[in-house]
Design a protein around this nucleic acid. Structure first.
Lengths: 155, 155
DNA sequence: GAATATTGTTTGCACATACAAATATCATTG
DNA sequence: CAATGATATTTGTATGTGCAAACAATATTC
């Protein structure tokens, strides 16, 4: 009797769960796990990882438009608007209307904290590389990005 | 004029973005892309993919507790509560309090639509396998799940 | 056996994200 | 040049998710 139970437990251990064989499940689990790291590092600036990336992009290309950001960051235009609003509230970027376009510029503060953001970014990479192994990370990242692009384009 | 535009598009293609080299970025991009497929298939039942998985789990193990679901689905207890509430509203599961535990059971309707859910699940797999290639999917899924587990445990 | 700690679950609050519709500007065509 | 179509951006609304705190019930310790 006991033996039967032991077998049952072994079967339902999470590593062999049916969900682990599901890309939809795994991809979201990974995203959540790694986002937790990102938010922890970027959270010191009161922003989340996508804000951080967006700020980098704006500092690099002052006057960038929401649609360009949408393309680069793989996020919906509406999401971009919301993120920009947040960064604007924090006085890290400002918006300028030019015709039907909106141009986004970094503020001085936005530019000045950018190096810290970049450093946090590096720390995030270090942290997950330490856990996963540097070479694995490179390969995995490439594969994952390729897959996301294929799915994004192919629908 | 037309030709110039074509060239410009080619230059700013996402595959050469610095973010593609970032696992945090790529993992989230993949999760969003694939969740879009999942929501499309499961959306016909008015639920999202995590509801679907949860319902499967509840049908398979009637009387399962939130903490067990939390473990299996890699989701926070509070998130589990919210998902259960939703499924309860839709009359697909019901809750029973037993001491400090909560036992979750499927309703008849919950049990009856479970096969359809499973079919939708298969369709999701088929759809992304078709885009990504079946063998790649297996390998990728395994790697991704392994990584998510490593990150989840190792923090 | 009462006080304290631990465990399981649920709320309050906040946030990233998306879809659909609204709005505003530009382009095109008759 | 007016009307219609296309494009860029923003809102309204909704949802999944998590953290921290509250709550409830069990376990432990003195």
């Amino acid at each position: 009797m006991k033996e039967e139970k032991t077998i049952a437990v072994a079967v339902e251990t999470p590593s062999t769960s049916r969900y682990s064989a599901c890309l939809l499940f795994s991809a979201n689990a990974l995203a959540r796990a790694i986002t937790a790291i990102g938010d922890e590092e970027f959270g010191r600036f009161g922003i989340c990882y996508s804000h951080a990336y967006m700020l980098c992009e704006v500092v690099d290309q002052p006057g960038i438009t929401p649609s360009e950001l949408s393309e680069t960051l793989c996020l919906t235009p509406s999401t971009i608007t919301r993120l920009v609003e947040k960064l604007e509230q924090k006085r890290l970027v400002r918006r300028e209307s030019e015709g039907k376009k909106t141009l986004i510029y970094p503020t001085e503060e936005g530019e000045s904290i950018q190096p810290e953001i970049a450093a946090a970014w590096d720390r995030v990479s270090e942290r997950y590389s330490q856990v996963l192994g540097e070479t694995d990370v490179c390969q995995l990242t490439q594969q994952i990005f390729k897959a996301s692009k294929a799915l994004g384009d192919g629908i």
